[in-house]
Structures are given as C-alpha cells and as structure tokens.
Computed example of a mutant assay.
Amino acid sequence: MIRTLVVDDDFRVGQIHSSYVRRVEGFEVVGQAATVAEALAVVRTLHPDLLLLDVFLPDGSGLDILRRLSQNHAASRPDALMITADHDIASVRAAMKLGAVGYLVKPFGSADLTERLGAYRRLHDRVAALSHATAADQSDVDALFSAARPPAVLRSPAKGHSVPTLTAIHRALSTAGTALSSAETAERIGVSRATAQRYLSYLVKEGTVLLELRYGSTGRPEHRYRTAH
C-alpha cells in the first residue's frame, strides 16, 4: 500500500481528498495535516510514501515543506503531488525543481485525482521493480520518466472519443492486475461491449494499451488488453 498524507488548510476539503484517495486501489490515508509545522511533524512520525500537498498553508507554503524535507531528510523524503488553486507558473516551476511528481489545480474531481494517483502508482511499482537491478537500460529510464504522466491521448483524444470514457477504460485496465477482455472492460465501467472494443482499439493504436492474444484449445484466440506501462 502507498501510504499517503493529505495536507490542506481546509479540514473539510482535506476530508474530501482523503475520501478520494481511499477509493483508489493500492493507496491508504495515514493522516491529515493543516499546517507546515503539523505536516513536518507527521512526516517525521508516520513516514508516508506520498504527500497530497496544498501550496497555500496558514504558516507558509507546501513548497516550504518540500524544501525543508529535501534539506533534512533527502534520502527518505516522501514524494509529493501538489494540489492548489494557484495557476502561477512560478509555483509550478518551483514544485518541479523541488521534485514534485505532479501538480493538480483545484477544483478537481475524484476521476482527476484517480488518474494522477494511478500514474504515480505505476511509477512507484516500476521503481520498486528496478531497485533489485544493478543497472537500468534506456527503455527503463524512459519508462520511469513517462510513468508519472497521464498519457497524452487521455488528455486530448481524437474526435469521437471522450476523455472520461478513455480515462475510465485506462483506469480499469491499470487497476485490474491482469489483462482484461473487451467484455470484462465494458462490465467494469458500465458501457456496451462495442463501445469498449472501439475505445480499446483506439488505445492500442495509440500505444497506450497493449493487445495480448490468449490461445485456447479451439477457436479463435481471445483478445485481452493491458496498459503499456
């Protein structure tokens, strides 16, 4: 489980974001904090893997938390997904320089956060898988840098394909733990098999989803799908 600390100065908003996190497979919320001082204290005692970190806090900035953790706990510093209503490019650049794995602008819904957390989980799992290797080749490095970013095809799809449906299908595949058929995918997200098949074919063509052929004793091979990363 990816242990997550939610940091937001608004307790009610923090509760909502915590409920979003709890719905995502592979994540658990270990606590909430509302200030810089409280967040630093919780990090020292609970050692979370990920901070869902607001920029504006009563006693400073979420960026201050990243700076202090980088100075004092660089080796064990948790990752951070920034959440804020601030659209200022300077804040975005500062977050990037401090190693934030993502930046999500308020207001956002459960699906938006689920997409970012799914991308982070793929990064987390890939890093864990590579931790036992003596060296990484170029494909491993490329995969690490792309894993934390939602696929571009989900953000700006071709005409005739909706972002919510693409995101739902990609999320269903990434959380399934095994390759799915078009019928299984359709059932998971509540669309027709024909719709699921059309979207899956599009994602395969774009390279976001991989097609696997499963051969049985008779008949045609079964088509099954999984995410590319």
Rank of each mutant, 00 (worst) to 15 (best):
Y199E: 03
R77M: 00
L52I: 15
D8N: 09
R193Q: 14
A148I: 01
R149T: 14
R126S: 08
P164T: 07
D88Y: 10
K97H: 11
Y225D: 08
R116P: 04
P48H: 09
R68F: 06
H170L: 04
K205P: 04
D64I: 12
A85N: 02
D86S: 13
Y199D: 01
R3S: 11
G160C: 05
G62L: 05
L117H: 07
H161D: 08
F11T: 04
R23T: 15
A90I: 00
A228C: 13
S201F: 02
R3D: 10
H229E: 08
A172Y: 11
D64T: 15
S91V: 06
L210N: 09
H73C: 08
R188P: 11
F108I: 04
I2Q: 00
A168V: 08
S19H: 10
V105A: 04
V209C: 01
F56D: 12
D125E: 14
T35E: 02
H124Q: 12
R122P: 02
E206A: 10
V29T: 07
P164S: 06
M82F: 12
S201T: 15
H229T: 07
F56Q: 15
M96Q: 13
G26H: 10
E28T: 11
F56W: 10
L166R: 09
K205T: 15
R226V: 11
A194H: 10
R44F: 03
D10N: 14
A148G: 14
R214E: 15
E187Y: 06
Q197F: 05
G207P: 01
A186V: 01
H124G: 06
P107A: 13
A186P: 03
L123R: 12
F11H: 12
T218Q: 06
L66Y: 01
L166I: 13
T35C: 02
L200G: 08
Q15P: 00
V127T: 09
I16H: 11
A80D: 08
D59K: 02
Q138M: 11
A194G: 05
A152T: 14
V21Q: 07
S192W: 03
S217F: 01
L69E: 07
T114N: 12
T165M: 05
P157F: 00
R198I: 00
R22I: 04
A133P: 04
R68E: 15
L50P: 08
P150I: 06
E184L: 07
P151I: 08
I2N: 01
S18Q: 09
E184I: 00
P164C: 06
S110H: 06
E115F: 10
Y215R: 04
L46M: 12
V127N: 01
A147S: 06
V101G: 11
L5Y: 07
G219H: 03
V105E: 03
L180D: 11
L69A: 05
R198P: 01
I2A: 01
M96Y: 13
L200A: 09
S146T: 07
T4N: 06
G207I: 03
F11M: 07
G62Y: 06
V141A: 12
T185H: 08
V92N: 02
L210R: 13
S76G: 12
M1L: 08
D9L: 07
T185L: 15
T185P: 09
R22Y: 02
E187W: 04
L66P: 00
S181N: 05
A128Q: 15
L52D: 05
E25N: 09
A179T: 14
K97M: 13
E115T: 06
E206N: 04
V55Y: 05
